[in-house]
C-alpha cells in the first residue's frame, strides 16, 4: 500500500493500522533527509499550503512550517488575531477566500471540536487537523507513537500511561485511538475531576494513583495542565496538583524498571514534571520534537500525492 485510506487527516480515529505503518515508514525516509546537510527535497514544489491557526501555537506551527518548507511547498500563514475573523467573518467564508487564491492544502487549528470535519464537507482542498479544541490532534499522536516505535520497536503488549489533564486534552484522545489500533495497552491517570466520565469506554484502564500508573507502564506520556481551558477549578491549587501528580526523579528511582518519559510540550516545569525528570536520560521529549517534523512531512507528502478523493 502506498496511499492513505483517507483524503484528509482529521483524526487518528479514521486511520487504519496500515495507514499508521505507511506514515511511519515514510517518516523514516524524511528523518534521514532532515539530517542531511541539504535538508530539502522538491516533492511539493507545485503546492501551496495555508497554515490557518485560530488558536495559539508555537511548536506545532513551526513544525508544520518547517515540514512544508523542507518539502519545497509555498506556505502562507494566517492567525486569527490579525484577521477579518475579528470583524465577524465566518469560518467557511475565511477559508473560501483563502482557497480562492489557489491554495491546495489547509493546516488548521481551531478552538471548536469538529471544525476541520465541518470544513472537509464543504471545500475541495485537503485538510490537516492541527488540533480542534479538546477533540483531536492527530499529528501529535502520530509523532508520539512514532517516537515510541523508535525507542521500543514494537507496540505489541507495550504499556503506555497517559498522565495528567485528560479532560481537556486532544493529545490524549488522539493518542488513545492511535495506540489502541497499534496494539499497545493504554492507561489514563489523573485526578478524578480531570478524567472524562466515559473514558473507559475508549478501551483504556483508569488509575487515580500516579505511582501505580508509573509502576504499570513502560512509557509515561505526561500532559500539561491546560489552565487556559479551565473555566472552573478542577483541583485546589497547582501546588497540590504537583504534590499528588507531579513526577520527580525519586519516584522513578523507586521503580524496579526504567520507563520512557514523554511530554507533548510546553512543559510546566515543577508542576507535572520536575526538571530532574524532563532533562534525564529517560526523557525523549526533544526526540519527539525532531520526529514531529518528519511525521508532518510524511503526512503532507502522502496526502498531497493522492489524486482526488481517496
Amino acid at each position: 500500500m502506498t496511499q492513505l485510506s483517507v483524503p484528509h487527516l482529521l483524526g487518528t480515529k479514521d486511520l487504519t493500522k496500515d495507514d499508521f505503518n505507511l506514515i511511519f515508514e515514510t517518516a523514516d525516509n524524511f528523518k534521514e533527509i532532515i539530517n542531511r546537510p541539504i535538508k530539502k527535497v522538491p516533492s511539493l514544489r507545485d503546492i501551496t499550503i495555508a497554515n490557518i491557526f485560530f488558536e495559539n501555537s508555537t511548536r506545532t506551527r513551526i513544525s508544520f512550517e518547517l515540514a512544508e518548507k523542507r518539502l519545497s511547498a509555498d506556505t502562507i500563514n494566517f492567525s486569527s488575531s490579525q484577521s477579518s475573523v475579528k470583524k465577524g467573518e465566518t469560518l467557511l467564508d475565511t477559508v473560501n477566500n483563502i482557497l480562492a487564491m489557489k491554495v491546495d492544502m489547509i493546516v488548521m487549528r481551531h478552538a471548536s471540536p469538529g471544525a476541520p470535519h465541518f470544513l472537509s464537507r464543504y471545500i475541495d482542498a485537503k485538510i490537516i487537523n492541527a488540533g480542534d479544541g479538546t477533540h483531536e490532534h492527530p499529528t501529535q499522536a502520530l509523532l508520539d507513537a512514532y517516537s515510541i516505535r523508535m525507542k521500543h520497536k514494537s507496540f505489541r503488549g507495550l504499556r503506555v500511561a497517559i498522565i495528567g489533564d485528560i479532560l481537556h486534552s486532544r493529545v490524549a484522545i488522539s493518542n488513545i485511538f492511535a495506540l489502541n489500533k497499534l496494539g499497545a495497552e493504554v492507561m489514563v491517570c489523573g485526578p478524578n475531576t480531570l478524567l472524562p466520565k466515559y473514558i473507559s469506554s475508549l478501551g483504556v484502564q483508569v488509575e487515580l494513583d500516579v505511582f501505580k500508573a508509573l509502576q504499570w507502564c513502560d512509557v509515561a506520556n505526561v500532559l500539561r495542565i491546560q489552565l487556559e481551558r479551565q473555566q472552573i477549578k478542577y483541583f485546589p491549587s497547582l501546588r497540590e496538583y504537583s504534590l499528588y501528580y507531579g513526577i520527580n526523579k525519586s519516584m522513578l528511582d523507586k521503580l524496579d524498571k526504567e520507563i520512557t518519559i514523554m511530554h507533548p510540550g510546553p512543559i510546566n516545569r515543577g508542576v507535572e514534571l520536575n526538571s530532574d525528570v524532563a532533562d534525564s536520560e529517560h526523557s525523549i521529549i526533544l526526540d519527539q520534537v525532531e520526529n514531529g517534523v518528519a511525521i508532518r512531512m510524511a503526512v503532507l507528502y502522502l496526502l498531497a500525492g493522492t489524486k482526488g478523493e481517496a
Binding site: 502506498t2 525516509n29 489524486k307
Partner: peptide
C-alpha cells in the same frame, strides 16, 4: 540513492511512490 522525493511524476500518478532508504 533513493530518488522518490525528486521524481517529476509526483501528483501525476494515482498514488505516491513508496520511498526506499538512502
Amino acid at each position: 540513492l533513493d530518488t522518490t522525493f525528486h521524481r517529476d511524476d509526483f501528483r501525476r500518478r494515482d498514488t505516491p511512490k513508496k520511498a526506499n532508504e538512502t
